[in-house]
């Protein structure tokens, strides 16, 4: 199985598993974590485009996430608009942030981009925390509505979960189509060798800005759903550690693999909850695990799977040849 076929099969399997998981989980708390996982899946698809496909280490995910969450929260609670226009606006708003952040920073490479986006994330958090008249400061925003279809409101957590899962599946299809399009090829070209991409006529700056905007559009949707799921948001969630957690999701799954990023998102949403008993050791061990992955398994889970399938195929071919000779 190669490239896009492996991806499509994996995506179908992952979404089928996620759909089956909800009734199998008994604890109400873990059902909630599962819903969070799906929201993280939506957001990580945005990061997959800018980091996985285009190779830019974007360390400001918490900034995008925070802005998207607050756009939906403020529009629904202060302006009284419905969930749908608010979700659209949070997606467009974060997409616009991608453009605003993208144009000045994307002429820059590597470390500049990472540090600038760290700066962006931190500035966003300062503003959310301290611009009290608008954001409510440290108290956050309350009473954020759940999504609705006409008079049917997704107050039930299971309904909300399947609603998010369907959205995530639609977005995964969109992300796959984008990856297979000429833009996907251009993204990967910029990732693998920016100079070579420039040389064959790819406008690498334009491509990076486009990847950033697309990332914003995806994250905005996930962020809006996040506010709606919690119905309450506060600014101290959107930290640099969270930004790095998203980067790690992509890394664990395998840089450049969409199903990998999704598996990474689900894993890294559950892992902190399941390893609660480690308490303060958790983050130290988490740092070590990430270090180990970067050094020993930089291709991540999907890279390992691909490698296993390749080896099996080669073994099968070799066996076939031997039978043929005898």
């Amino acid at each position: 199985m190669r490239g896009s076929k492996l991806r499509n099969v994996s995506l179908v399997v992952i979404f089928a598993l996620l759909a089956c998981a909800e009734p199998l989980i008994a604890s109400r708390f873990y059902k909630f974590v599962l819903a969070l996982a799906v929201i993280n899946v939506i957001m990580v698809m945005g990061l997959h485009i800018i980091f996985g496909l285009t190779g830019q280490i974007f360390m400001g995910m918490a900034g995008f996430w925070g802005i998207g969450s607050y756009i939906l929260a403020l529009i629904t609670t202060r302006l009284g608009l419905g969930f749908w226009p608010a979700l659209l606006l949070s997606s467009l708003g974060v997409g616009l942030m991608g453009l605003v952040l993208g144009i000045p920073t994307l002429r820059l490479k590597g470390y500049y981009l990472s540090i600038t986006t760290i700066g962006f994330g931190e500035i966003t958090r300062f503003i959310l925390m301290n611009w009290s008249p608008v954001t409510g400061g440290v108290f956050g925003v309350f009473n954020i509505p759940r999504p609705n279809f006409g008079s049917f409101v997704f107050t039930n957590d299971a309904h909300f979960y399947y609603f998010s899962l369907v959205l995530a599946a639609i977005l995964a299809v969109i992300a796959s189509i984008l990856e297979d399009s000429k833009y996907g090829t251009a993204f990967k070209g910029v990732r693998d060798d920016e100079l070579a991409a420039d040389a064959i006529g790819i406008d690498s700056t334009g491509i990076k800005v486009m990847a950033f905007i697309t990332c914003g559009l995806f994250v905005g949707i996930g962020a809006g759903l996040y506010s709606s799921l919690l119905t309450y948001i506060s600014p101290e969630v959107f930290t640099l550690e969270e930004s790095f957690r998203f980067v790690t999701m992509v890394l664990i799954g395998g840089i450049g693999s969409l199903p990998g990023a999704i598996v990474g998102a689900v894993l890294l949403t559950f892992l902190p909850e399941m390893l609660r008993f480690l308490q303060s050791w958790y983050l130290a061990i988490y740092g070590l695990i990430v270090l180990g992955i970067v050094i020993y398994q930089p291709a991540g889970i999907m890279g390992a799977l691909q490698g296993y399938l390749d080896r099996r195929m080669i073994a099968a071919r070799r066996e076939g040849k031997e039978y043929g000779a005898s």
């Binding site: 280490i57 590597g110 550690e241 790095f244 980067v247 990430v290 970067v294």
Partner: peptide, 15 residues
């Protein structure tokens, strides 16, 4: 990759 590994080292050291 080195950048990611140094970030991971930083998280480990902080915690």
């Amino acid at each position: 990759m080195v950048m990611l590994s140094t970030i991971a080292l930083g998280i480990f050291l902080k915690n």
